[in-house]
């Protein structure tokens, strides 16, 4: 039994195999005892889950939840609080004391956007940048996520990707007037490792303050901010993009709580 055969077994459990693959699997099962054992195990799982019946919630649960709702409607946040992770700590997830920070090596990784529509390949050479910085290839980990936006005459996108040690945000926009992109983050978990113009900008200023990176600029902008993961807290960012003081994008990306060891 090899990995490919095992993958075939699992895909069969998921109902993702083709007729040809099913036929091949039948043939393999006749000749490979180890594979047949694994097959029987997975079939046991399949049979057991097929028997699963969803449970009905207790009859009074809905009423209990409705009674427990606050009187006032959910607060609509017009201006996002800077310390969004603190709000998450208090309101979404159980607070956990930060008792132990662990250190990651702060090797600086320059990352670049992957999507050709996001950052055209001609603008940056991944091999050069990554190799020059002695960093690992950011592609080897999670798939980048891209969030396009278009509002108030501003079009652009935010790309997010992550490696084991770093968290990267790529922001692009094209606008005549000044655009402000404000990235807020949990300083317990992230530290700004590098900010870089991927594309020469006509005018762009970058400023960092505790827990905030702010980009202000006009024209065609492509900028990458890389964070090192430095400890426990929320790995994630809030990104607000404003045009003439009006938000065109307000998003929280991947707020994942890293707990102390």
């Amino acid at each position: 039994m090899n990995e490919h055969d095992l993958d075939l077994l699992h895909r069969e459990v998921d109902g993702l195999t083709t007729d040809a693959e099913n036929e091949r699997l039948r043939s393999l099962l006749e000749s490979d005892h180890e594979l047949r054992v694994a097959h029987d195990e997975l079939q046991a799982v399949k049979v057991a889950f097929a028997a699963f019946q969803e449970k009905e919630p207790p009859p009074g649960l809905k009423d209990a939840i409705m009674r427990a709702l606050p009187e006032q409607p959910p607060e609509v946040v017009s201006a996002p609080p800077r310390s969004w992770w603190a709000a998450l700590t208090d309101r979404i997830l159980t607070p956990r004391p930060v008792t132990l920070a662990y250190a990651f090596a702060l090797g600086v990784v320059v990352a670049f956007a992957v999507s050709t529509t996001f950052i055209p390949a001609g603008n940056i050479d991944a091999g050069d940048v990554v190799g020059a910085m002695g960093a690992t290839d950011p592609y080897t980990n999670d798939t980048p996520r891209e969030y396009p936006f278009s509002s108030n005459g501003v079009a652009g996108s935010v790309g997010v990707w992550e490696t084991d040690d770093h968290f990267h945000i790529a922001v692009t926009w094209d606008a005549e007037g000044d655009i402000v992109a404000r990235i807020t983050f949990d300083e317990r978990a992230l530290s700004v490792a590098r900010t870089e113009n991927v594309k020469p900008a006509e005018r762009l200023s970058t400023s960092t303050a505790p827990g905030v990176v702010e980009l202000v600029g006009s024209g065609s902008i492509e900028h990458v901010v890389s964070f090192a993961k430095i400890g426990s807290g929320y790995v994630g960012v809030q990104i607000v993009i404003e045009s003439n003081g009006e938000p065109v994008l307000d998003m929280i990306e991947a707020p994942r709580l890293i707990e102390p060891n």
């Binding site: 939840i65 709702l69 606050p70 959910p74 309101r91």
Partner: peptide, 11 residues
Amino acid sequence: LKVYENLATYN
């Protein structure tokens, strides 16, 4: 309850 309280933050 958390969904209700945080609905405004839903993206």
